[in-house]
């Protein structure tokens, strides 16, 4: 464990807490893409298949449980909660995310570390995570204005993978046999996808203005 990875995990945790705060505090999920939340639940469920077979550390196990539980909680809340679900931007959240699932699965069958059930689903979860934010970014683009908590949610979500890139660089230079090309390349793509969002987020922060994405 290194400081970059720990910072990344904590930033990821913060992003989830900000999302839960937004939904419970405002009793609204406007501006949040249910499709992105469903993709994230799928990412965690397929990545942590080794939850009960490979024990890495208490920290690792607890964080896996937190990520799985929180992502499922958000999806259930957005689908079931009678107040929250009314504020879901159903007609704006129309990204065809099934294509992202299909593309990630096909790529995982072709590019993986080992052609085993667990490794294919691990690679699938890595590729899907890189693409999972797309419905959310499209939704924000369409809705134009980004409320503070949603903006902070997406910002922390993007920042966490940027910390992981620093973690991979650090591990590459400090560990002999470190080669996580699948995670590195996918994490790079993931962070780049946030680039334009980061740009407009920074502009709005600098001008101390409400964040506007060009329609």
């Amino acid at each position: 464990m290194n400081i970059f990875r720990f910072a990344g995990d904590m930033t990821h945790l913060i992003s989830i807490l900000v999302l839960l705060l937004k939904i419970y505090a405002t009793k609204s999920c406007s501006g949040i893409s249910l499709k992105t939340q469903e993709l994230y639940a799928l990412v965690f469920l397929t990545r942590y298949l080794d939850l009960f077979t490979d024990f890495i550390s208490v920290y690792n196990t607890i964080m896996k449980l937190v990520f799985i539980a929180s992502s499922l909680a958000v999806v259930c809340c957005m689908r079931m909660h009678r107040v929250v679900r009314r504020s879901y931007d159903k007609d704006l959240d129309t990204f065809r995310h099934y294509f992202l699932i299909l593309a990630s699965f096909v790529l995982a069958l072709l590019v993986n570390e080992k052609f085993t059930f667990q490794e294919i689903f691990w690679a699938f979860s890595i590729y899907l995570e890189a693409l999972a934010i797309l419905p959310q970014l499209v939704l924000l683009q369409r809705s134009g204005n980004v409320d503070n908590l949603t903006g902070q949610y997406v910002f922390f979500l993007g920042a966490y993978r940027a910390f992981y890139i620093l973690n991979w660089i650090y591990r590459y230079f400090t560990e002999q046999h470190f080669s996580r090309w699948i995670a590195c390349v996918s994490g790079l793509v993931q962070t780049v996808l946030y680039a334009d969002f980061f740009y407009y987020y920074f502009i709005s922060w600098k001008n101390n203005a409400k964040m506007q994405l060009p329609a």
Binding site: R5, D9, H12, D54, I56, N60, E113, R180, W181
Partner: peptide
């Protein structure tokens, strides 16, 4: 790339 036995990252 050599196969990691298990993925220690989240």
């Amino acid at each position: 790339s050599d196969n990691e036995e298990s993925h220690d990252e989240l």
